[in-house]
Nucleic acid binder design. Structure first.
Lengths: 142, 142
DNA sequence: CTTGAACCTCTATCTGCTGTAGCTTGTATC
DNA sequence: GATACAAGCTACAGCAGATAGAGGTTCAAG
């Protein structure tokens, strides 16, 4: 039987975060000692590791919920898991694209700044006037 | 005199967001009509445009606050604006790096999936076992 | 003068946690 | 068995950065 702190250490997850995952139904409700402390089995550790790893790959908690449901029913075809992963891949690719546009613009901004007074600062000038931008960047980098 | 809806349309900012910016002190408190509605000058529009453009380039509201302060005092040297922009550039570059590692891993995941049953789904398998990962990805893409 | 779009305030919600306060439990050591 | 104290517990507040809705008021065109 594992205490919550053990799961925490072994998965690199904050104790509060584990309790939070239970609260939102991502982790099953843990068994308790007579005194009310949570106790876990190895399978709970595996589930938590799955969640953390998915988070590291950028999946939302909702996507992870779907993936866990699939994982719990091993007889279905895995097309759905595949499509969730592809969706995530597309999102990551789009974010990269947007960030690269931002990077280009920021680079140009700082390259043109010659350290003169704020009055003629290129950085501030560009921020003031979007029309000076060379690239499109209409969405906020999320 | 411009109504809040006009600022909203001309900058692509939701009305609530403009009020939110006022609430947190990014926008100055607007003047009011006798009936209590906000009214703006062109300079407020410019300030809002500056904020939105900075947000599109990924600057945090705190950074924007600093940039606005600088912009309001045009006689100082612009080294500080420059360093804020450079910091932002570094952040963007790091995010791109992390996302590219994720992309690589996700690509491999979906490439190896052959549509068989969930039981042998590569996607789920990789999520279950971090040691199958080829790339490092220890931080969550933010 | 009437209509109705646009405005107002206030509060709640979202994502994904993280931190704090104040108290209780479990376990190792004496 | 007593004691110390790390680790657990609940409950609630807070972060960024908005966004949405309820329920009511104002402005401007016709």
């Amino acid at each position: 039987m594992l205490a919550i702190g053990t799961l925490s250490r072994r998965t690199g997850t904050k104790v509060q975060t584990i309790r939070y995952y239970e609260e939102i139904g991502l982790m099953n409700e843990a068994g308790r000692t007579a005194g009310g402390q949570r106790r876990y089995f190895e399978k709970d550790l595996d589930r938590l590791a799955f969640i953390r790893h998915s988070r590291q790959l950028g999946f939302s908690l909702d996507s992870i919920r779907e993936l866990l449901d699939l994982s719990d029913n091993p007889s279905q075809p895995c097309a759905e898991a595949d499509s969730i992963a592809r969706r995530q891949l597309r999102q990551v690719e789009q974010r990269i694209k947007r960030l690269q546009a931002l990077k280009k613009e920021l680079k140009r901004m700082v390259a043109e700044c010659d350290g003169e007074s704020v009055a003629e600062c290129k950085v501030l000038e560009v921020l003031r006037d979007h029309s000076e931008c060379l690239t499109e960047h209409d969405e906020i980098g999320a």
